[in-house]
Computed example of a mutant assay.
Amino acid sequence: MSKQTVYSVTSGFLIALAGTLLMLTLLSLHLVGPESVKNDKLMIGGTILFISLYVFLLFGIYSSMVYAKKIAQKLTFKKAFITGLIVSFATAFFSVLFTLLFYEIIYPNYNADMTVILTEKLSNQNLREAEMIEKINEQTKYYSTAMQAQFSFVGNLITGIAFSLLLSLFLKSKKN
């Protein structure tokens, strides 16, 4: 495996790790998770997490492309794009692993705790019982491990590909 590939895969790992550490930090600050729903702060924490994850991914792809350019002295669009794809796939893969780690080992009661809090919140909104059950089932499915892992993989991959395309256009070496 080339130095560039190792650098790109390591970048993906670090991006996914940074996202997980941010999630844990926001959880401890009650800006995501059950307490954030209870205190109506989920929107704040969710926005911080959402934007930060994209910034981490953008920076990781950018730094990998700059490193590839430094090693090769020249960076074609194709080489830049492939570098971005490697970072994107690595980030997507490791984010799934960290999502599984979070939901299955670190906080296995996350979904159950969210369901309890959501049930409490919805019971105060004068909804019919059928509406309340439907909303709770929808949220329970949304916060499931499988769904979060899927969102993590697809979101990182699609966003990473888009960032890779854009950055490849700007970072490719100019023709002489």
Rank of each mutant, 00 (worst) to 15 (best):
I86D: 02
I61S: 01
L24G: 08
L26H: 00
T119F: 07
T83V: 08
G46Y: 08
A68I: 00
F77K: 08
Y110L: 14
F89D: 02
D113I: 02
Q73L: 10
V87F: 01
N124G: 11
M114I: 13
N39T: 15
G33P: 09
A92H: 06
L31K: 07
N109M: 10
V37A: 12
Q73W: 03
T76F: 04
T83K: 06
N39R: 09
L58H: 06
S123K: 09
Y110C: 06
M114E: 01
A72N: 14
V116T: 12
F59W: 12
L58R: 07
S95W: 04
V96S: 11
N111E: 09
Y54L: 14
L101K: 01
F93W: 04
K74Y: 15
Y62T: 07
N109I: 01
F56N: 01
E120N: 13
L24K: 10
L75G: 06
F94M: 14
L29Y: 04
I86L: 14
T76E: 07
H30S: 15
S63H: 12
I44P: 07
L97V: 15
F81R: 05
I71K: 11
I48P: 04
F98M: 10
N124S: 14
F89P: 00
T47I: 10
V55K: 02
I48E: 00
I86N: 11
L27G: 07
I82F: 11
K121N: 15
L42Q: 15
L85S: 07
A92M: 03
K79E: 13
T99W: 03
L57C: 02
V66P: 00
F98I: 10
Y103P: 00
L75W: 02
Q73D: 11
I86F: 13
Y62N: 09
Y110N: 11
I48H: 03
S95M: 14
I106L: 13
L97Y: 09
S36G: 08
L97R: 09
I105S: 10
H30C: 02
T83N: 15
S64T: 05
K70L: 11
K121W: 10
L100K: 02
I117E: 15
A92C: 04
S63A: 11
G45S: 07
I82E: 13
F81C: 03
K78A: 08
K79D: 14
K74V: 12
F89Y: 09
G60C: 03
F89L: 14
A112I: 10
F81L: 13
E35A: 10
E120L: 08
S88E: 07
T91W: 01
K41V: 03
S123P: 05
G45N: 03
